[in-house]
């Protein structure tokens, strides 16, 4: 998006939430990394992220703007809403990667099956079949369901470890192949997450 001149003093802009000449709050652009003053890295330190979120929340809080112009009041409301979204997305490693992939032009929402490796479908199908058989059993299958949950959670843990490795590789090298692999793994993760949810439904 083309940055606009400062709406208040007319100076040409820097990429910032505030005009660097008159320090007035600018029309907020929903760029999550920019909101938190971060470089576009996939690996983020959660504590640093939280500190940044608190700092920005204070700076943008609508209470600070209630004596200002209607424009600033409006911008502070919008900016606060975007900041909350930004923190919710960026603190979750999966949502964060999906956000970055989407921005880089990867299709996330509307994928066709051709984007899913056939082995993964086979594996997920078999796991679902096994889970269904267990479900149809009586209370005596509970230990097996507990076992299945442990297995799915382990799988999820492995996936998260692999994602973290790929995040670091991508951050270090800007490697696009890493992004493609990340997307494949995110798909796998969603399937495994569903299996965890399904098995937990049976265990409550």
């Amino acid at each position: 998006m083309q940055p606009e001149n400062c709406w208040h003093c007319g100076h040409s802009p820097e990429a910032s939430l505030f005009c660097r000449f008159c320090n007035t709050l600018q029309r907020p652009v929903p760029d999550y990394y920019r909101f938190l003053g971060l470089e576009r890295k996939l690996h983020l330190d959660p504590d640093d992220l939280q500190q940044r979120f608190y700092r920005m929340s204070r700076l943008l809080h609508p209470d600070r703007y209630h004596r200002r112009t209607p424009t600033e009041r409006q911008y502070s409301l919008e900016a606060t809403a975007i900041l909350n979204d930004a923190y919710r997305v960026l603190r979750d490693p999966v949502a964060r990667a999906e956000y970055v992939l989407k921005e880089l032009g990867f299709q996330i929402g509307e994928q066709r099956s051709k984007d899913v490796p056939p082995e993964l479908l086979e594996e997920v199908f078999d796991l679902n079949m096994a889970l269904e058989e267990l479900r149809e059993g009586d209370a005596s299958v509970r230990p097996q369901l507990e076992e299945a949950r442990k297995k799915f959670l382990n799988l999820q843990g492995e996936i998260d470890g692999r994602l973290e490795e790929l995040y670091r590789r991508h951050d270090a090298t800007g490697d696009r192949a890493a992004l493609t692999e990340i997307r494949t793994i995110l798909n796998r993760r969603r399937y495994v997450q569903n299996l965890v949810r399904e098995v937990e439904k049976e265990l409550v």
């Binding site: 996330i108 929402g109 509307e110 994928q111 099956s113 984007d115 899913v116 056939p118 993964l120 479908l121 086979e122 997920v124 199908f125 679902n128 995110l186 798909n187 969603r190 399937y191 997450q193 569903n194």
Partner: peptide
């Protein structure tokens, strides 16, 4: 035919 929709975790044979 085995297909799947990753966004909702569906798998169909």
């Amino acid at each position: 035919g085995m297909v799947g929709a990753p966004e909702c975790g569906d798998v169909m044979k």
